[in-house]
Simulated scan of single mutants.
Amino acid sequence: MAQNEKLAELSAAGVAVWLDDLSRDRIRSGNLQSLVDEHSVVGVTTNPTIFAAAISGSDSYDDQVHALAVRRVSVEEALRTITASDVRDACDLLAPVAARTGTDGRVSLEVDPHLAHDTDATAAEAAHLWWLVNRPNLFIKIPATEAGLPAITTTIGRGISVNVTLIFSPERYRAVMDAYMSGLEQCIDTGAGFDGIESVASFFVSRVDTEIDKRLDALGADPSLKGKAGIANAQLAYQAYEEVVASDRWRALEVRGARPQRPLWASTGVKNPEYSDTMYISELIAPGTVNTMPEKTMMAYADHGAPGLPIEKSYEDAAAHMQALRDAGIDLDDVFRVLEEEGVTKFVDSWTELTDSVRSELEKKA
């Protein structure tokens, strides 16, 4: 089938188009396959909110939930069984994409966000989820908290592919890239090699604008500063990525066969209706990147999206804008701290919602 022209053009520019959503209905109905066939989709990301909505809003899970209920499994075991099943099926659907591209065809599954500040527990759960799903095109999502960084290194060192999530600042992103390279270096030390190891680093975009716009309003600052920080911040993150992949340390890994940890633009659904609904795609087009999109955002770009300024030509303006925000009284370090804390809290709340959904369904089917 013919691909949507605008999304195909985006893909040709080096942007891997991923869907930020998954459900059993989406897989069984053929919708996910049609997005692969017609909208250039080559990957899927998930989170607890997505699964909570899927499980509570569909009867496709009834038979499995009933089987789990009569076995009297714990809510935690049921939750992992259900979500791993969907992710495994999505991995199988995308396996031809993985075989064709070598880098994409990936589906992400998140560690329990309650463990975000526990290094050892995060690494242990990452290994368990990798075993549970048992598909080579899986990504384990680990948050980029301070405790998450060494867990990333450990997990990569075990040969497990990782999607690092909840990155808000270029500085933390550099630490994430360092953690990834340290994990690869552990593989060298153990003689394991890099076969099959992939990683992406999920840099959040729209939430930065939401937080900074709120602060600009409170300061009574120039309104022309609003709605630009998310993109500028991400552009500077890509500049950091270019600097790292040009480093001697990375080149020493690359010659041994290591693959770069691609930047992934996350939180790309536009929150403010006054802004263009495709801005977090159009302005972040660069080779070797991933953009994971809600279906609504993907369809908006498929309908009327257009490429913006090449990202490599934006660095000077991006740096100037972030400085203008500082000059206006925005404490960027505090912004990024708050966003990380809120991000973990939101993931924990979503996990609780997911757990409650599974518990409710188990009780109904018991």
Results as ranks from 00 to 15, higher is better:
G269S: 15
V176S: 01
L284F: 06
K271V: 09
E9F: 15
R158L: 11
I156Q: 01
G102I: 08
A124N: 11
A328E: 00
S161P: 07
V344R: 03
A306F: 07
V164W: 02
P273T: 14
D89Y: 03
A144F: 12
V36Q: 03
V245C: 01
Q235G: 07
F347S: 01
L339S: 07
V344T: 07
R326G: 12
K296W: 00
V162N: 00
V290N: 06
A300N: 11
R72T: 04
D112L: 13
L332K: 00
D118Q: 11
N31H: 14
V107F: 10
N47M: 06
V41H: 05
K6P: 10
L219Y: 04
R158M: 11
P48L: 02
D178K: 15
T103M: 08
V245A: 03
Q186E: 12
G257I: 06
V208R: 12
E316W: 08
D327S: 14
F336A: 06
R251T: 05
Y241C: 05
G257N: 08
E38Q: 09
A121H: 06
R26W: 09
L362F: 05
V348S: 00
S224K: 13
A300P: 02
I140P: 13
D333V: 10
I160W: 02
R88P: 02
L264D: 00
A144H: 09
I188D: 05
Q3C: 14
R215L: 13
V65S: 02
L236S: 08
Q235K: 12
S314C: 15
A124Q: 13
L93I: 08
D25C: 10
V41C: 11
S23G: 11
V358E: 00
T83Y: 05
T210C: 02
S11Y: 12
Q235P: 04
R158F: 02
L216R: 09
A67G: 13
V44Y: 01
P223G: 09
I188M: 05
E171S: 13
E341V: 13
A124K: 11
R259N: 10
I311F: 12
A286C: 06
E185Y: 09
W130F: 10
R337A: 12
K271G: 07
T292Q: 05
D334C: 10
L19D: 05
A218R: 11
D178L: 09
G220M: 04
D25N: 14
V162Y: 01
A98I: 01
